[in-house]
């Protein structure tokens, strides 16, 4: 009878608690969880005991339906366990083994405490329960990994768009990586805000780190240049590599701005426009000495 099966499983667990826990911990230890040193034995014990007590509570309240309300605390406990494991660099199967290694001890306990046909029925139920819980583990593991990826994406896009002050009124924007519309937006906002903050008149956009320049990227660049001009700052584009220059010409891309091949050239132009120049100190010293 399905109504009583969960209470029977509860009874099995209650009767063999120490035995099951001991065997499970043994299985967990063998499952290489400890050898790598990523988790300490006391922590593993706490996790196992915590899971076990939550499981008993869940069985009492929620029966065998893993999606029911009674399993909420157990699910969040599992999510926490897989979160910590995901962050410590466990593989998905290693994380799932935490739950799956409980199967064997539970089977053994069920086999001991009932006749053959009842044991087979309990075995099936236990199997389903543990499988469901294992899937939950994988799901939360996956979620954590996706969060990590998203965070890294946003960090990369922030890291790769710094605005550097080269001189009073001269900014440099070294672009690294492919320019898509989302990144162009970030780049543009960063640059324009820095123009306001530094009171810059000239901004050098260096595209040495941009692997390819197609018509779309060129359009993004031109948008940035146009926006900077509206704010009252001139733009110079530098760091155009030979192959990129050729591709641009083949594609018919026409950047209607001052372009220079290196950042140094662009900086020289910027200084010239600001009415400044770089001189050799020795030559001045020599002249005054004479």
């Amino acid at each position: 009878m399905p109504a009583s099966s969960h209470s029977e499983i509860s009874a099995i667990i209650d009767a063999n608690e120490q035995q099951i826990l001991k065997e499970w911990l043994e299985a967990l230890r063998q499952g290489a969880s400890l050898e790598t040193g990523r988790i300490k034995e006391p922590e593993l014990n706490t996790q196992a005991k915590g899971f076990f007590s939550h499981l008993r509570g869940a069985l009492r309240e929620g029966g065998l339906d893993v999606r029911s309300r009674g399993y909420e605390t157990l699910r969040s406990f599992l999510a926490e366990v897989s979160r910590t494991r995901a962050l410590k660099g466990y593989s998905p199967s290693e994380t799932a083994m935490f739950v799956f290694s409980l199967k064997r001890p539970l089977f053994d306990a069920a086999a001991k405490s009932a006749d053959a046909s009842a044991a087979a029925q309990r075995g099936w139920e236990i199997n389903q329960l543990i499988d469901e819980l294992g899937l939950q583990t994988i799901e939360s593991y996956q979620k954590v990994r996706e969060e990590v990826i998203l965070r890294q994406q946003s960090e990369i896009s922030e890291l790769s768009t710094p605005v550097v002050k080269l001189w009073d009124g001269v900014l440099a924007l070294p672009l690294i990586g492919t320019l898509d519309s989302a990144r162009t937006q970030v780049v543009m906002e960063n640059l324009l805000q820095s123009i306001v903050d530094y009171g810059a008149e000239i901004a050098v956009i260096d595209i040495t780190g941009v692997p390819t320049v197609d018509t779309l990227v060129a359009q993004h660049l031109l948008k940035t240049v146009a926006a900077a001009r509206l704010m009252g700052a001139d733009c110079i584009i530098s760091g155009i590599r030979p192959q990129i220059a050729q591709t641009m010409v083949h594609l018919g891309v026409d950047l209607d701005v001052t372009t220079k091949s290196t950042l140094a050239d662009a900086f020289a132009v910027a200084l010239q426009r600001m009415g400044r120049t770089v001189v050799d100190v020795d030559s001045i010293a020599g002249r005054t000495a004479r």
């Binding site: 543009m188 906002e189 123009i195 306001v196 948008k223 146009a226 926006a227 509206l230 704010m231 009252g232």
Partner: peptide
């Protein structure tokens, strides 16, 4: 000479396709 355009305004104008090529600009 148009001066003091805010970054957000500049981005909006560019997205609208109005680059105001006939206008000179300055920061302040």
């Amino acid at each position: 000479v148009v001066v003091g355009m805010r970054p957000a305004v500049a981005i909006t104008l560019v997205e609208l396709g109005l680059a105001l090529t006939g206008v000179k600009t300055a920061l302040n």
